[in-house]
Design a protein around this nucleic acid. Structure first.
Lengths: 195, 195, 195, 195
DNA sequence: TATGAATGAGTGTTCATTCAT
DNA sequence: AATGAATGAACACTCATTCAT
């Protein structure tokens, strides 16, 4: 809620569009300004530099993303249900926003190491949500006692992320949201056949 | 057998070192040439352009990578054992080559979209190995019948890849190889408690 | 009497401080406005543009400078005494105002050629005072008959100016005012030994 | 003799022309490159950055300048004769090179403080020559015993420099070289009438 | 009078690639 | 085969000035 200034959001939204349509390396500040309908210099009244646009973009979008997911999860009882909602909502939100999906899955990963480190900071918010689900699952007995928190987190995030990336790279040739239940099953039961 | 020319490998090995030590965006052709002990222009006698160095690098290294993993897997009977060897060898090979781990997990992902598409082509070789294991598992009845091949592949690759990336980003603060059995267990049984 | 508006002087004084403390090229209009406690736009109610601030600054300060020197000189009889007062007062006034000394000797000289031409116009007032002393000296017989007015003026101004600049550049490591009598001697008698 | 590469001198000479004709602030690197008949990038094979061109320019030209003056002076016996040659040669060299005179007297003085400090370093070579003359003069008894070295240096340099600057600013409306003897007289005997 | 958000022109530098030797 | 000097396109950011309020 820090930034109510309409131009702040205008510029971030413009950045998403320009990056999605032109690629990270072709997203010049002047192009973003033009898309936002402001002068180049105006960008610098709201952002420290180009990197700041990108980090802010990720913070804003990921913030909203996490908030929405947490809302959905809060209404669920079991870890399994929470996990399902996480996956379902994650897929739904990205499926609903083509540009954002391209930007987060493909383009922003081309950024400089330093920027990626700052993006990872933001990502920690998401991973915390995952962690809470895993901890809940272990407490309720739904998940194995000997489950390693970090590995479980990596497995859950890795599976979801790889699925979304494949979907984006295949240019949405399959329906992402429909996969939610299968991905959920895979994470809970693994590849193995139930005993 | 394709390239016996010593300079071809010399340049690729130089590229790995330069990229690992300087980062993708600081790995200029002139730096690679210097590290390889050749003139800038000589690079272009062996590679079409800079992108070609990187794709070739990935092809060469990933080729060897896949060969070694296939060797190990061939000696195993069950899908579960094959999967274990895949994970174990994957971790072992990267843990043994610092530079290569950094280059494949962090640096090369900063490349242009186009280059990443070509890298994905190479990656298919690896994913085919995963696919074969999954298919075997379904045939032997080790894996569930209703397992979706593509999703299983994404889950396996996503989990392994995310684990390695975390390890590289944490600057090797934990022992990667030791995690092989836990990751294996996670992929086979999932997070859930056995019935 | 020209400008009674308090903000006019406020802005000029702010400019002297900002230029002295930040250097000519780091003295942005917004910084001057902030120092003066007015909005950026307000500057343009009192000055045509940035250059106008600097020229006005020089005019105001140099005007006061010349007035004070003329006062002192008027009380003296001989050209030699007048010259001495000129030097002494020149040194005294700049030694008493650190900021002004830095601005006139170092910073303002970095200005564009056009601005420097306008500054030279203002400087003529000072050179006229010098000229009057030289003319007086020739009339009274204190100075040589064949003395070229322009050259004498350049020698007097050049020597004084170079001395002040050296003093400013040496960060006031020596006492400027104490040099007045020696500089006076040098100008009257030159380097040579009296016959 | 460090740089025999023709392009090095080509670029420096181009810089003198471009700065003299366009002014310091309109002397873009691309303009200098064009004048030198090389590509923009070529500049950076010979100079670290733009500032380096300007410092090198000053070093090269001032180096030659000092060398020539020292040669002339070496052939003279008395301090007075040496001083005369210094002035005469100083005037002659600048009168013979319009562009260089403009660059050193007007344009280069607009440079940033840092660059001016580096230019001052180079200038010390010239001031050393002046110092030697003054010291000689005191030893031979031509100059006063109580002459302060630093003040004498400032007087000599200040007078010569101010004269040249006036000449350049007046667009060569008078003959500079002809003034040498009068300036010499002024420095040796001052404005005063011989006793 | 006074404000301050918005404007947009302008430029030093890097580096993949070429080609004469 | 090998060299390495030369090329030239491309871009983030600053800041004096304006003008609606």
């Amino acid at each position: 809620m820090k930034h109510k200034k309409p131009k702040y959001r205008q510029i971030i939204d413009a950045a998403v569009i320009v990056i999605a349509e032109n690629g990270y390396h072709q997203a010049q500040v002047s192009k973003i300004a033009k898309q936002a309908g402001v002068a180049d210099g105006t960008i610098y009244l709201y952002f420290k530099n180009k990197e700041d646009i990108l980090v802010s973009l990720f913070q804003e979008k990921m913030g909203t993303f996490i908030e929405k997911i947490e809302e959905e999860i809060a209404g669920k009882e079991t870890a399994s249900e929470k996990l399902y909602m996480l996956i379902e909502k994650h897929f739904a939100l990205l499926a609903a926003d083509d540009h954002l999906a391209i930007v987060t899955q493909l383009e922003l990963r081309q950024s400089h190491k330093e920027l990626r480190l700052r993006i990872n900071e933001v990502l920690k918010g998401y991973l915390n949500v995952v962690d809470k689900i895993v901890i809940t699952g272990k407490q309720t007995g739904e998940f194995r006692d000997n489950l390693d928190l970090r590995l479980a987190r990596q497995m859950i995030f890795g599976t979801i992320d790889e699925t979304v990336t494949t979907w984006v790279m295949n240019e949405h040739r399959f329906n992402l949201q429909e996969l939610a239940s299968q991905v959920h099953e895979l994470i809970i039961y693994g590849c193995g056949r139930p005993a």
